[in-house]
Every structure is written in C-alpha cells, then in structure tokens.
C-alpha cells in the first residue's frame, strides 16, 4: 500500500467524514419522510381518515366558489382540495386570517367529525411563492388562472 502525505491523509479522512455525514442526513430525511409533514393533504385524509376527535392539521387550496357564510354570520364552510382532486369540507367559526381567499392555500387545525366534515378550531393562511404587485394583478391573469392551484404546496 502506498503511503500518503499527512496532508492528503487528512483530506481523505475529511472527505470520508463528509460522505458519512451526507449519508446520515439522507437516511434521517428518508425515515422522516411523512413524519415531519406539518399537515395532511386532502387525499391523505380521505385515504386514511384519523379517528373522529383526534387533533390533526389539514392543508390544501380553498376551492373557488366554495366559501359560504352560515346563517349565524360567524361560521363559514368551504372545501379544501388538492391536485389529486380529493375534497374535504371544512367548517370554522372565528376570525379569518387576512390572506384567507378562495383559490389560495390554507392550513386548518382541528379534527374530523363523524360525518367526514373537518371541524377547524384555527385557520392559518398559507402564502404561495408568487409575489405580484397589486396594480399588475390584472396583467397577470394568465399567471393567475394557472394560478396558485398549479404552483402550490408540498406536492412535488
């Protein structure tokens, strides 16, 4: 076996250590795959419904035209959907975040009722990656129509 200069020995050691570190990260990330998700997507919630009453988070797009205000004036219902076209009806009473709009992202905290409706106790608005000035909004209709739905969230 040929002998390396000490400098090269250290270089090889550091490279081996780096490779081991990267391997460790990839293994950890792989085992964390879905464990580290912040919320369930609608199709995950439909495919594996959690037991009624268990606290979960649901994230997706607020379906266009689905937001309705109930007779009491503070309860709203809407549908959360995703690219897999799964739909989960959501009911929520309380103050809406400013960025809660149809066709935009939302994360609902709450639980699933016996009839399959998601009862939210808290709503968080999810901003997507697009930044567009207000006065140019109309010029970006093309962008808007493929819009947030096409560009969003955790579905790669």
């Amino acid at each position: 076996m040929s002998t390396l200069k000490p400098k090269h020995q250290r270089l090889v050691l550091v490279l081996i250590a780096l490779a081991a570190l990267i391997g460790a990260v990839l293994l950890a990330a792989w085992s964390l795959r879905t464990q580290a998700d912040y919320f369930y997507l609608p199709d995950e919630l439909v495919a594996n419904p959690p037991p009624p009453g268990q606290a979960v988070r649901l994230g997706g797009m607020v379906e266009r035209g689905s937001v309705e205000t109930m007779a009491d004036g503070v309860t709203i219902s809407f549908v959360v959907t995703d690219q897999a076209a799964a739909r989960v009806p959501v009911r929520y009473s309380g103050i809406l975040p400013d960025l809660f709009v149809e066709g935009s992202g939302v994360v609902a905290e709450g639980s699933v009722a016996a009839d399959g409706t998601f009862i939210a106790s808290n709503l968080l608005a999810k901003h997507d990656e697009n930044y567009v000035p207000r006065e140019m909004q109309d010029m970006h209709k093309a962008m808007d129509s493929t819009g947030p739905e096409a560009t969003t969230i955790g579905m790669e």
């Binding site: 964390l32 580290a36 998700d37 912040y38 968080l124 901003h127 990656e129 697009n130 955790g154």
Partner: peptide
Amino acid sequence: VVWWNSLHQPPS
C-alpha cells in the same frame, strides 16, 4: 419546504 409539507412557502 420541498421534502415536507410546511406552512412556510416553497422556494420562490
């Protein structure tokens, strides 16, 4: 933000 669903936006 690519590996996991997150409240933070994906890269712009």
